[in-house]
Design a protein around this nucleic acid. Structure first.
Lengths: 155, 155
DNA sequence: CATCATGTAATAATTAAAGTTACATGAGAA
DNA sequence: TTCTCATGTAACTTTAATTATTACATGATG
């Protein structure tokens, strides 16, 4: 699947896990995310290492949320995903020796850095619990019940 | 070439043009940017349409700067390039009907929007003249002369 | 009119990301 | 035990987007 970002994919998964108590398999999560089970495992691997989710093998196995949603922020999740770049610019090689290029890159880099810091600061102020509350507010506004969140995916 | 961004490529070209009075060919600019002459023409096409540069055919032809560097900002250049996305996130399709995904995307979109606005605001406050001045300051700090800027590229 | 240089469309190549396959590991059920 | 389920991961394939290249037309200059 062509996702909007790793972070949004991970959050989507986490919010689904938050709705369920029993373990959810990678296959089910993959369908919700319109992607492949292996991609789910790879994505969640980083979150498991940080203890945000837990995985269990065998019958009745799958993924479960394993953290206090109020104390984990989007910034934490982003870090657990390996801090992928949020900006459409890559680090300059700096190896050309061209002063013009160096100056241009330095100027742009500074600006992009500030924007990225702003994003990360924002992420640090949004907890999983807040995101979850937002979802339920939207659900209520649309007249649905929490239970319906589980069944909102396409045919 | 794998560039850091369209904007940095364009600025690199513009700063080189600023150092020269005579027209510079796409071929020369392509070498400075380690790319292909056609890519240079495609990149500069947008800037020419806005009148920031001028192109001339035939003998002695090439590209020349055609604007007041103090009154053109990085934001102007970015716009002339077609306002390519500055963020590593794409617009969500919104078509899944999944409330969870919608809420996640809405939250992230808001944050990314703010970051992009910050970047654009920054770009609006940096003129080509300021960037040029920065380059010369760096050159002086390194003990070079303005003339050397022309010859700073790799073998 | 030969050469130089841009203008632009069309095509090829490259690259990064995502999807998929394959197989190993471990947990529970029969 | 042994079979099935589910994750863990490496290797590989596919896909999409970007960039590079080719090809040819247009116009300017010597």
């Amino acid at each position: 699947m062509r996702r909007t970002s790793k972070l949004s994919a991970a959050l989507h998964i986490l919010m689904h896990l938050a709705e369920r108590d029993a373990p959810v398999t990678s296959e089910v999560l993959a369908k919700a995310n319109q992607t492949h089970p292996v991609v789910i495992r790879q994505t969640l691997a980083g979150l498991r290492d940080k203890g945000y989710v837990r995985s269990e093998k065998g019958h009745g196995g799958g993924w479960t949320l394993a953290c206090d949603m109020a104390s984990v922020t989007l910034h934490d999740i982003h870090t657990a995903l390996g801090s992928p770049s949020l900006l459409a610019i890559s680090e300059p090689s700096e190896a050309t020796g061209c002063l013009v290029e160096q100056a241009v890159n330095a100027s742009l880099h500074q600006a992009f850095q500030a924007a990225e810091s702003l994003l990360l600061a924002h992420f640090g102020q949004v907890s999983l619990a807040m995101l979850s509350a937002d979802i339920h507010a939207r659900s209520a506004a649309r007249g649905g019940s929490a239970h319906h969140l589980e069944h909102a995916h396409r045919a």
